[in-house]
Simulated assay, not measured.
Amino acid sequence: MQKVVSLFSGLGGLDLGLEAAGWDCVYATDIDPRAVESLEANRGRRLADGRRFMGDAQIEVGDVRALRGEDVLSKSGQRRGAITLLAGGPPCQSWSSAGHQLGFDDPRGQLIKDYLRIASELDCRYLLFENVRGLITARGPDGVPGSALAWLREQLFARGWQTHVELFNAADYGVAQRRVRVVLVGYRTGDLPRLPEPTHDKREEDGRRPWVSLGACIGALSPLSDEEIIRPTGKLALDLEGIKPGSGVKSPGKSEATRPGGHWGYKQGAFVADPALPGRTVTANPQQDWVRDPRHGLRRLTPRECAALQSFPTDWIITGRRVDQYRLIGNAVPPRLAEAVGATLLASCEGEDRKVTWAAPTPLPERLQSAIDYTRREERRNGPSRREAPAKRRVLVRA
């Protein structure tokens, strides 16, 4: 059975999906004690093939900056080169559009370097790296959009891994959530990976099944208790009163050179979900979307519902306070998406080698390179005015 080591394990979404696909996790770690508590609480759950989740895996609280490959090998009872897959995505906040996008200037952005170091120390055949869509256009040390991903791929290439990068929408794989994430697979010569084809589609084209809606997903759960219900209060309640499902309270527009009317969006925590569609991306904070519940009225999505939207089993144990639960759920990889990726990677391991040779990292898929090119053009057009606007606001405040 092919072995996997899991870094930044969190709530175990990636681990659960990989093990459901047939992988055997031998070591898992996270710096968050609540995450490790949750992993331990779910250890031993029976998988479809009769195996137990995490089986005899070593699970521990740890900081990857202090972790050494030889320690992982010793604790998991493996030798260097015997672990087929290193899986995990460093914290996404430094690249996320929901954060400040500080990239490598954020200490969390530097954790990518520890991922690279541990990958080399373990000498795994495959790497599986998951992160937010913002990593595609993220700026590296040179400040150029797209250079962070280019740096990462070049670093992996120098260590002997070619890379394939794709964007996946979890809704296309049966998850009741429109969650778009970057998946990077590193592979050795002769190990060209297979990646999964979508099984679901908004338009039900090519024989694919329809997207799973938010309404269908949370409607299948057991009834909510009074303690789970959160209703809006004060000004937010008034603001949301007339909002239709699928819309929200707009934030003020930001003035830009090519957008005189401003570049607006929806205020965080002020969006009413459309139950006919998969949910929007579940975030790692308590400001989740609202739903108009026929029984309870306007209320916020609960942790239990958010876990279901991520495709966790309905009885998955999540320890900690409500704020801890939202954080763990929002940071997780949807298990159903992880299973789809894990199944095709496992097939790649066990199939015939497809020999390839390369002298440089392979080109990105055209649609990803197009996104980078667009971001660079947009930066040239709007970057100066976007940076100028906050400066003007600061002057007005001082005046």
Rank of each mutant, 00 (worst) to 15 (best):
G12F: 00
N331T: 08
H296Y: 14
V291L: 07
L18Q: 00
T199G: 13
P107E: 02
H200W: 07
R153W: 02
G215C: 08
R381V: 14
W290I: 09
P193L: 07
G13V: 08
D315K: 08
R380G: 10
L16W: 03
L11Q: 02
G146E: 09
F168M: 08
N42K: 02
D56M: 01
G88Q: 07
Y187F: 14
E40G: 04
A270R: 15
D191L: 02
G103K: 04
V212M: 03
D239S: 14
S225T: 15
I243M: 06
Y115F: 12
I229V: 15
A338Q: 05
D15Q: 03
T258A: 15
P193T: 10
D63K: 00
D49M: 10
Q177D: 10
H100P: 08
W23C: 02
W161I: 05
D63S: 05
V395E: 15
S74F: 08
S255C: 04
Q2S: 14
G248A: 04
F53T: 06
R79D: 11
E121M: 09
R125D: 14
P334H: 02
D30V: 05
L86I: 05
L102C: 12
Y266A: 12
L127Y: 12
D324T: 02
E388F: 13
K250D: 14
I136S: 06
Q268C: 13
L16E: 03
L364T: 04
F129S: 03
S147E: 05
A276C: 10
C306Y: 07
E154K: 03
T233K: 13
E121G: 03
N169E: 12
L135K: 01
G134E: 13
L116N: 04
I118S: 01
L192W: 13
I118D: 02
G22V: 01
Q325S: 01
G246K: 11
L277E: 12
P334G: 12
R188Q: 15
N331E: 10
N382V: 07
P107Q: 05
Q325G: 01
W95N: 01
F53W: 13
A340C: 14
G174L: 04
R45M: 09
T233W: 02
K75P: 00
Y173Q: 06
E19A: 00
A138R: 00
P313L: 09
L368K: 12
A158Q: 13
L149F: 04
R259A: 10
Q110V: 00
E19N: 06
G207M: 11
A170N: 08
G17Y: 00
V36R: 00
S225A: 14
Q268P: 12
D315W: 11
A340Y: 10
L195I: 09
G109Q: 07
Q325Y: 04
G44N: 07
A119Q: 01
D206I: 00
Y115H: 10
I112N: 01
R231W: 10
G215P: 11
L368T: 07
S370L: 11
A276M: 07
L122S: 01
R203G: 01
N331L: 06
E121I: 01
L67C: 06
E241C: 11
Q177V: 02
E197Q: 15
I136Y: 09
V341C: 02
D32Y: 07
W358N: 08
P335I: 03
R299K: 12
